[in-house]
Design a protein around this nucleic acid. Structure first.
Length: 311
DNA sequence: AAGGCGGGGGT
DNA sequence: ACCCCAGCCTT
C-alpha cells in the first residue's frame, strides 16, 4: 500500500482496509470494485488490483498461509525486491536488507556513491551495499530504522547535517555533495491530453458512467463517457461527436460546465479537462442515479467534479 | 533499459 | 515549477 506513497498518506487507507478486510480471506472474497473504492484517491491503482489478486492466491491456493522467504514472496503479484525484503525481514526475521527511496539516499550520501539510483548498475550496487552493511542481529529494527532515518534526518532537501549523528563519517558531507546525492538520471516528460467528459443528465436525474479498460491510466475505475481530442474543442464539435459516444436522442441541450479547464496533474500527464453537461429529454437506458455516483470507484478528477456538481 | 503508472505535500 | 514518496510491471 505504501509503495511510492508517504506513510502519512497511506495510514487512513490502511485503517479502512484492515477494518473492511480483517483477514486475507475477507479480502479474497471481496469484489474488485469494492477494493478499488476503498483505494480511491491513493493512486497507482495496479497496487490495489495486485493486492486483491495476491489475497485470492494466498487464500485459495495456500490456505491463507503467507510465504515467509524472500524467494517465495517475490513471486507474488505486486511484490518486488523492496516489499519481499521488507516482509521477510520485518515479519519473519529473515536477514534481508530493504532498499527503498530513503535507503538509497542514506547510503548514497554516507558512502558517497555517485552511481545513478535508477540505472541497472546503480540498483544492483546499492542492493549489494545494503546487504553488506546491514545488521542481522536485529534486522527488523535496522531496516525500519534506516528508512525512518532517511525520512526524518537525511531528508531530500535541506537536511540538518549539523545535528546528524553520522556527520563525522558522512562522505557526502565531507566532500560537499549532500545536495547532489543521490544521483538520478533523466526526468519523465509530461504529456498533455485533452479530456471532454460528457455528463448526460436525464429527466430522472440519472447519468451515464463507464469503466475504463486497460492499458493506460485508471484501469477498471469509472468515469463519464469520454471524448478525448488532441486540442481544446468548442461546443459545436462536442454536439457533433456526441451521438457517436452516448445514445441520446435529439432534442438535447449541451453546455460547458467549467469555463476554465481543469488541469489534473498526474506524474507523467497533464489532463486538460472540460465537463460538458448534456440535458436529455428522454430517459436513459442504462442510467445511474446521480445520487448513486458515490458508490463507484472513480479517479480524483471525477470525484472532485461529482462533489461540486449540482444540477 | 526505459517508460508507464496517481496523488499529495514540501520547497 | 520541480522533487519526492516504505516501487512494480510491461515493453
Amino acid at each position: 500500500m505504501l509503495q511510492q506513497t508517504r506513510v502519512a498518506q497511506g495510514i487512513p487507507y490502511y485503517l479502512t482496509f484492515v477494518k473492511s478486510f480483517p483477514t486475507v480471506h475477507h479480502l479474497a472474497k471481496a469484489k474488485e470494485e469494492q477494493v478499488l473504492k476503498l483505494w480511491q484517491g491513493l493512486g497507482y491503482y495496479s497496487r490495489a488490483r495486485n493486492l486483491h489478486a495476491t489475497a485470492k492466491f494466498i487464500s485459495e491456493e495456500r490456505d491463507g498461509i503467507f510465504p515467509d522467504t524472500y524467494k517465495e514472496l517475490i513471486k507474488l503479484k505486486g511484490i518486488g525486491d523492496y516489499t519481499a525484503s521488507a516482509i521477510a525481514s520485518i515479519c519473519f526475521d529473515r536477514p534481508e536488507a530493504v532498499v527503498d527511496g530513503n535507503v538509497y539516499r542514506v547510503l548514497a550520501r554516507y558512502y558517497g556513491v555517485e552511481l545513478p539510483i535508477n540505472s541497472k548498475e546503480g540498483i544492483s550496487f546499492f542492493r549489494e551495499l545494503a546487504h553488506r552493511v546491514k545488521d542481522v542481529q536485529n534486522i527488523k529494527d535496522y531496516n525500519q530504522g534506516i528508512m525512518e532515518f532517511g525520512a526524518l534526518q537525511c531528508t531530500p532537501k535541506n537536511p540538518d547535517c549539523n545535528s546528524c549523528p553520522l556527520h563525522n563519517d558522512c562522505v557526502a558531507l565531507a566532500t560537499d555533495k549532500v545536495a547532489v546525492l543521490p544521483v538520478k538520471t533523466k526526468k519523465t516528460k509530461i504529456r498533455k491530453r485533452y479530456f471532454n467528459y460528457l455528463v448526460v443528465v436525464d429527466e430522472n436525474n440519472s447519468t451515464l458512467l463507464q469503466q475504463r479498460i486497460g492499458p493506460g491510466i485508471w484501469q477498471n475505475l469509472y468515469e463519464f463517457p469520454l471524448l478525448e481530442t488532441d486540442k481544446e474543442i468548442e461546443l459545436e464539435e462536442v454536439g457533433e461527436s456526441l451521438k457517436g459516444i452516448v445514445a441520446v436522442e435529439a432534442p438535447f441541450e449541451v453546455y460547458l460546465y467549467n469555463e476554465n479547464q481543469v488541469v489534473h496533474k498526474l506524474s507523467h500527464q497533464h489532463l486538460h479537462t472540460r465537463f460538458w453537461i448534456i440535458h436529455a429529454a428522454d430517459k436513459l437506458e442504462n442510467g445511474i442515479r446521480i445520487s448513486d455516483l458515490h458508490k463507484y470507484p472513480v479517479p480524483v478528477l471525477i470525484a472532485d467534479f461529482i462533489k461540486a456538481f449540482k444540477i
